[in-house]
Design a protein around this nucleic acid. Structure first.
Lengths: 206, 206
DNA sequence: CTTAACTCGTACACTTCTGTACGAGTTAGG
DNA sequence: CCTAACTCGTACAGAAGTGTACGAGTTAAG
């Protein structure tokens, strides 16, 4: 029972109201998993304005819901990367454009943590791989330009980006940081972190 | 029923075996909450080599266990701060000394996340306040020395430290980063992040 | 050595969530 | 209009965890 299988009698045939239900469910799941990684199926159904049985009709487990949500969210982020046009201009500017995507921070919420917990790190990694690869290329480009540091492993640099995005969301949610400053604080933090480091010893570059 | 009250007939009178049990419970809880924020009382008891009923004899809820563990861990970290001698020499060096404390990373695990989840952000904040204050002073000292940036709020800088410590632990646990490099990567990352930023606009400094 | 503290295992009532079954009402689509 | 798809609520069995009660055995401490 892989987390991806959900009843699809004929892949292309799905009625409009079913489509609507599924979207409502995923929206509700995004909110639910954002609040707690252990959201209940009942909570998701209620928030989606849908019966619990209907929910099970579309997704036969919480893992299936989570995986579908993960897939949809990563597709959205991939689109955001397209919109940010990561190949054009200085890499640092492209990164700033990407991070400034308005809805980006909201989508992150607790999804990542919940997915790792319930689907396992490997599953998340494989789903995340395309986006990860594009980010890694962006970092690599910045390193060749000389605007990003080369003394730390690229995967670690990407991890720090994710970690700081999550930290930022928490701080805003807890009221420790005004949401208006969020994007500015994040970009300043990341650009400082990524900037070439004085005592650079190039442990990983090329 | 505040999370701090546990049966203490006479505060100073506790038998040696009880003391031993409590320590074993907290050690087991540290491992358990590190693996999952929803560790079961049964799991903790089993890992501690103690009956589940005995566990309830000392802590009447999971929250009580978590709070006691949080208290003990923060006390340990406070001692580590003492040992790092944060008032001596350059602030950056003092921070490095503190981060290099061997057992420090292990203590962090999932404790923070579990505590926030089950005890609430306010409770964690109040328990954490003393340590937080000392770190804030260290950052402040570095800012006055000119070795730390002043364009970001101090609380946010501390938050980034915590976020990156957690990220580092995860990466090591998932095998993405050899544990031998952990402390070095962390210190390089943090020193780069804290270093004065070119376009510094001093939004918060004193 | 005596007592109170501490321990154990088992058992029980309670709650919460899961996943499925049933039967009937509603709605989209040809 | 007619059928299949979709929906609903209720209900049920099962799993898992919580917190407490009981009774009896063990151990530290004076």
């Amino acid at each position: 029972m892989t987390p991806t299988d959900r009843p699809r009698p004929t892949p292309t045939a799905r009625r409009a109201d079913a489509e609507r239900s599924i979207n409502a469910i995923l929206d509700a799941a995004a909110v639910g998993f954002g609040r707690s990684p252990d959201t209940t199926m009942a909570e998701i159904a209620r928030a989606a304005g849908v019966g619990r049985v209907t929910l099970y009709g579309h997704f036969n487990s919480r893992e299936a819901v989570l995986d579908a949500l993960l897939e949809r969210t990563l597709a959205e982020i991939d689109s955001a990367l397209d919109a940010a046009d990561p190949e054009t201009g200085p890499a640092a500017d492209a990164l700033v454009r990407f991070l400034a995507t308005p809805w980006l921070l909201d989508r992150f919420r607790g999804l990542y943590a919940a997915a790792v917990r319930h689907l396992g790190p490997d599953h998340v990694r494989s789903r995340h791989e395309p986006v990860f690869h594009r980010l890694e290329q962006l970092i690599s480009r910045g390193q060749h330009e000389g605007s990003f540091r080369t003394d730390l492993p690229r995967p670690w640099l990407i991890t720090t980006i994710y970690a700081l995005v999550h930290a930022l969301i928490s701080e805003v949610e807890e009221g420790n940081l005004p949401s208006g400053q969020a994007v500015d604080v994040l970009t300043r933090t990341l650009l400082g972190l990524l900037a070439p480091y004085p005592g650079q010893e190039r442990s990983d570059a090329g």
